[in-house]
Nucleic acid binder design. Structure first.
Lengths: 158, 158
DNA sequence: TATTGTTATACTCTATAACTATA
DNA sequence: TATAGTTATAGAGTATAACAATA
């Protein structure tokens, strides 16, 4: 007897206190932004996650850094970083070179192909950023970033 | 010859364009907020993720809803929801009852123990929210939430 | 002894595809 | 036929513990 729900007729649920919670709104927004990032790259035939983009920028701007230093900057464990670097290296974007000063560490760097790819990626990120900020004035965007940074510092001191 | 990096002496990396990207700042803030949530609950001897909290609130406010309806509201696949419900049910917080009107669906609901737990959880969430918003005036917090909602609607229209 | 990178392992979140029972 | 829930499976992100090479 119950009929299949027609998309336009699905009753929105009661979300109670959730929409007034900063953490909840932050998480939902982040999820939508992630989806937009993925769609932007997919439409351009490119495969990259926001995390991979951040990693590539960090390696480009700090060529020669070690895996430990990179893991610390990304806020992840060094063991978590290994398969991520494996994948980017397999794609020919990044190399682990021997460090000239410390036999234990790798000096990370982008390949020429990685540099070129990063330029393409950066263009797509700008497109994506324009879209997600399309409902905001540039003043609002700056305000939003500043407020988010304030939240981040408040959350970090545990 | 290289010495171990002393925490207070670790040079911050050059992040290039990243700090000006809304998506990047959003992701880092979300990560710090998640860590604060986890720490708040861990200190109180409770184990709960933000996602589980949102799910419990949704079930409480919409008792009897189906797994499909819940998955839709959470933005996840119905198969993803199964093990999540399994865990909450195993903890005695939630039940799958037979629907009186449709033999295919489950009517979800909180157990009395789940209701009581949710009250405790909500108190911890308020503590957590106070901390992450501690650097903001209440006006700023409302502004932040409004701006995030604007971003979310801009990101969703693909 | 301590650090770096790696491996083995485990857990969670996510999805797709196929199965079942019901509609 | 179509929908709801489940299972099997797979990929990515996360961690801890232990190991080899190096400091």
């Amino acid at each position: 007897m119950p009929r299949p729900p027609v998309a336009s007729l699905v009753k929105p649920l009661d979300r109670g206190v959730l929409p007034s919670l900063l953490g909840y709104v932050l998480r939902r927004t982040q999820s939508a932004v992630f989806a937009d990032f993925a769609a932007t790259f997919a439409k351009a035939g490119q495969a990259l996650t926001p995390g991979e983009f951040g990693l590539l920028v960090l390696v480009e701007r700090n060529a020669g850094l070690s895996q430990m230093a990179l893991a610390r900057a990304l806020g992840i464990d060094r063991s978590t970083l290994v398969p991520i670097l494996d994948r980017l290296q397999a794609r020919g974007l990044l190399v682990r070179r021997a460090s000239p000063t410390d036999g234990r560490t790798h000096a990370l760097g982008l390949t020429p192909s990685g540099e070129k790819a990063l330029t393409r990626f950066a263009r797509l990120v700008r497109t994506h950023e324009k879209r997600i900020a399309s409902g905001l004035s540039s003043t609002e965007t700056r305000t939003l970033i500043a407020l988010l940074e304030k939240v981040r510092s408040g959350a970090r001191s545990l």
